[in-house]
Design a protein around this nucleic acid. Structure first.
Lengths: 85, 85
DNA sequence: ATTAATTTGTTCGTATGTATC
DNA sequence: TGATACATACGAACAAATTAA
């Protein structure tokens, strides 16, 4: 089963930003490493307990920040320069 | 050719649930028998005129209900105890 | 033994409608 | 009103497992 990760639906920060921040923290921490895949959208849906759209919104933030890149049909990966952010 | 089965896209029940209910009815009726294969996803797509994802959602419902089980690469089969449901 | 065909599994892209805040 | 979230659906591509030729 997926490791549950907590987000607060009533926090001022919307869930998709909380998730983006959490994933960014995992990258900064080195839990998610450059070149390695981020959990799939399906897995993130299960881990965070949100809809797929919400996960996708979070990943869009990370993409915009250059922290990850997505390959259609493959997955989303941590960018090589992500650690220097 | 595949026997067309009617789905009402404007009904309150979403198509994937209508399909699940229809297949469950076929099982209850004995049209689909324990141990025997359910039509392949490809066939169900043609029969119901929906996308593969939608067929797979319907099959997920039946699996969750224990009415069928799926063997990767082989197919989906009616569970032995399906009749007692 | 190899190859091709079939079938299910996985993953992302996109769109629509509804509901909530 | 606008941003956000959820549910659902269709599409496309490729991988993996199984079976047939």
């Amino acid at each position: 089963m997926a490791t549950p990760r907590q987000i607060d639906p009533r926090a001022p920060e919307p869930p998709y930003r909380q998730i983006a921040a959490d994933l960014a923290a995992q990258i900064a921490r080195g839990d998610l490493r450059p070149g390695r895949p981020v959990p799939s959208e399906k897995e993130l849906v299960e881990e965070y307990g949100v809809a797929r759209n919400t996960v996708r919104s979070a990943l869009s933030v990370l993409r915009a920040d250059g922290l990850v890149y997505t390959v259609p049909g493959r997955g989303t990966y941590v960018s090589d320069a992500a650690s220097d952010s």
